[in-house]
Simulated assay, not measured.
Amino acid sequence: MTTSTTSCIRGRVVFLATSVCSALTTFVAVVFFAVGIGDGSVSSFNLVLWLGLLSVMALSLWAGYALHARGRVVLAIAALAVTALPGILATLFVLLAIVTQPRWN
């Protein structure tokens, strides 16, 4: 089985883009968690939800890097997309709201 050079480069670029987006999304979630701990909005009532969310995000990052290290690039991209796509969509929504300046009433 042979692979072309462009598909290898394209796979690396897509993996790098999804890993950066996934890492940024995870970083934002950790910052919100730390701020929530500081101001008291993360309490014992919703701590389990936060820990579950952060665990899934960390698992996604770990699985993406582990699969990429084993040469399973497509599965690595899919694992990273679990956290990268919501971050990309949220960013696009915020940019759209800033650019269009909608009336919310």
Rank of each mutant, 00 (worst) to 15 (best):
105 N>S: 13
98 I>D: 12
86 P>G: 04
44 S>A: 15
91 T>G: 12
4 S>H: 11
101 Q>H: 12
39 D>I: 07
57 M>W: 08
68 H>V: 05
105 N>K: 09
3 T>S: 14
29 A>N: 07
79 A>R: 02
16 L>S: 13
54 L>G: 01
23 A>G: 10
55 S>G: 15
84 A>L: 02
57 M>Q: 14
8 C>D: 13
28 V>W: 02
79 A>K: 01
91 T>L: 12
105 N>A: 13
16 L>P: 01
22 S>T: 07
28 V>H: 02
35 V>Q: 11
81 A>K: 03
53 L>A: 05
37 I>P: 04
58 A>E: 00
40 G>W: 08
9 I>V: 09
92 L>C: 13
7 S>T: 14
29 A>W: 02
46 N>T: 03
91 T>V: 05
70 R>H: 15
77 I>P: 01
13 V>E: 06
53 L>C: 03
79 A>C: 08
18 T>V: 08
60 S>A: 08
103 R>S: 15
99 V>L: 10
1 M>G: 15
60 S>L: 00
103 R>G: 05
31 V>Q: 10
2 T>M: 08
93 F>R: 13
60 S>F: 01
99 V>Q: 10
12 R>W: 04
20 V>Y: 06
80 L>P: 00
27 F>H: 14
13 V>H: 01
2 T>K: 09
30 V>G: 04
21 C>S: 14
46 N>A: 03
45 F>I: 11
61 L>R: 03
86 P>W: 04
69 A>H: 12
48 V>T: 09
87 G>R: 00
45 F>P: 01
28 V>Q: 07
27 F>V: 09
40 G>F: 08
26 T>S: 08
105 N>F: 14
46 N>Q: 04
8 C>V: 10
61 L>W: 05
101 Q>I: 04
100 T>I: 13
39 D>Y: 06
104 W>N: 15
88 I>N: 00
15 F>S: 00
85 L>D: 06
50 W>V: 12
62 W>M: 15
62 W>L: 15
39 D>R: 09
47 L>W: 10
43 S>L: 05
15 F>W: 04
28 V>P: 00
83 T>R: 01
73 V>W: 00
4 S>W: 05
18 T>Y: 09
6 T>S: 13
63 A>K: 07
92 L>Y: 06
43 S>H: 11
40 G>M: 11
46 N>R: 06
62 W>D: 11
15 F>T: 01
87 G>W: 00
38 G>K: 12
78 A>Q: 03
78 A>T: 11
64 G>C: 00
26 T>G: 00
91 T>Y: 05
47 L>I: 14
75 L>S: 14
104 W>P: 02
72 R>P: 02
63 A>I: 00
40 G>I: 10
61 L>E: 08
4 S>V: 05
55 S>A: 15
12 R>F: 03
54 L>T: 01
48 V>G: 02
23 A>K: 10
80 L>M: 03
27 F>A: 14
68 H>Y: 12
39 D>F: 07
74 V>T: 12
68 H>R: 11
61 L>S: 08
68 H>S: 14
35 V>R: 09
43 S>T: 15
